[in-house]
Design a protein around this nucleic acid. Structure first.
Lengths: 215, 215
DNA sequence: CAATACGCTAACCAAATGGTCAGCCTCCGG
DNA sequence: CCGGAGGCTGACCATTTGGTTAGCGTATTG
């Protein structure tokens, strides 16, 4: 199976170490870290499974390298300021499907690196939204920190629900950029115009809270 | 370690089969299905690991039983109409932490049962939103289906990002109901009032699409 | 009372996994 | 030309995994 990241290894001049990392990235992303054996990674990279250990010490070491690599792509990719300006949205969209899948897995597995990245994004996004409130292009919130957190979560959610979204939108998830464009547009629509025309949901929430508190 | 679901087994009158299922539910939810061995499940349920196989045939069988059980809780829980009325939100909130965690994992692992449930929720939610548009309490959308999909994804996202959210909100994730209340409130706020005051995000999105299309 | 069914377990098995080790081959500096 | 360093491998190992089997005890049922 040839894929985006390993393709260059066919032509190739990629160091074996990088090939292993890329292979791991894809497999970890699509299958989940613990469902992928070192032998599978080695096979996809076209090397012996011993070489994987030779380079990365342990499987955990390999995963950490993947984490670091993906994070470096997000942080230092085309448009360093992407994280600053749009709260990570652009960077996430730019990243290829394998990287996005890997990121989704990483966030769910709750690796330390992913946690750090998440916190960082929330922090940056929080400041960005505050600035927006000050400048008038963002609405004020009753709970700015919670809003920043849920906003980031919502931006990242499609990474985790990738497969479901493209399936529901009747798209092949091979080239799921179309699906990505559709649901991100729908999301921005909600961010811009809202979803409800009145306060009934807010009232309902208050009711739930009251009911819950009295229990 | 004593927990909500297994507690009753201490007193107990729960059938061993149910105890195994509950133990599996928790472990699968917290650790991820493939990181949990049948022996670990058996140990937590206080039975031999052979009994697990005796009852469920295979590990996959056990997982399917967990799927079915959780789904039955969601569909038939207190307030059968929960799924109908609020697009699943109330049901999700009502479900205990172990169940929520399990659901999050299931959606990410992309099990067939989870996929079916997701599709179903999108379907119901789509009709619900259409009705809202007709009745005037929901705003019309340029792409109703995509909006329903992203809306459902956003409602489910906290299941997957549970740990990150409660960490960012400085809550112990043991009793994370407080965190749940905070971010769900923030979410409803966005749904009701929107996030942006002007169309700049929509314009930016159009720009990205144009740029992308011309590539 | 006998037979059968069922909940349950210990012992066992083959396969796969992460990790180690000794050593090969090639390339580069002295 | 030599010698070490490092990329790389095959063979090997202990452990863990999901799964099987034979059999035990009990309770229900004819």
């Amino acid at each position: 199976m040839v894929s985006v990241l390993t393709m260059r290894s066919e032509t190739d001049d990629l160091t074996a170490r990088a090939r292993i990392r890329n292979a791991a990235l894809e497999l970890f992303g699509t299958e989940g870290v613990n469902r992928v054996s070192l032998r599978a990674v080695a096979a996809r990279a076209g090397v012996s499974h011993a070489l994987v250990l030779h380079h990365f010490g342990t499987k955990e070491g390999l995963r950490q390298e993947c984490d670091a690599y993906v994070i470096s792509l997000i942080r230092g990719g085309p448009g360093v300021e992407a994280l600053e300006d749009t709260g990570g949205l652009a960077a996430m969209l730019e990243a290829g499907a394998p990287v996005r899948r890997y990121l989704g897995r990483a966030f769910l597995d709750g690796t330390p690196a992913a946690a750090t990245l998440f916190d960082e994004i929330v922090e940056v996004t929080g400041r960005w939204l505050e600035q927006g409130v000050a400048e008038g292009w963002a609405r004020p919130s009753d709970d700015p920190r919670a809003r920043a957190a849920i906003y980031v979560t919502w931006l990242l959610a499609p990474l985790a629900f990738d497969g479901h979204l493209s399936r529901v939108l009747d798209m092949s998830d091979v080239h799921d950029m179309d699906a990505t464009m559709r649901y991100s547009r729908a999301g921005i629509e909600i961010f811009t115009r809202g979803l409800f025309t009145d306060d009934r949901a807010l009232s309902a929430w208050d009711a739930v809270r009251k009911q819950r508190g009295s229990r």
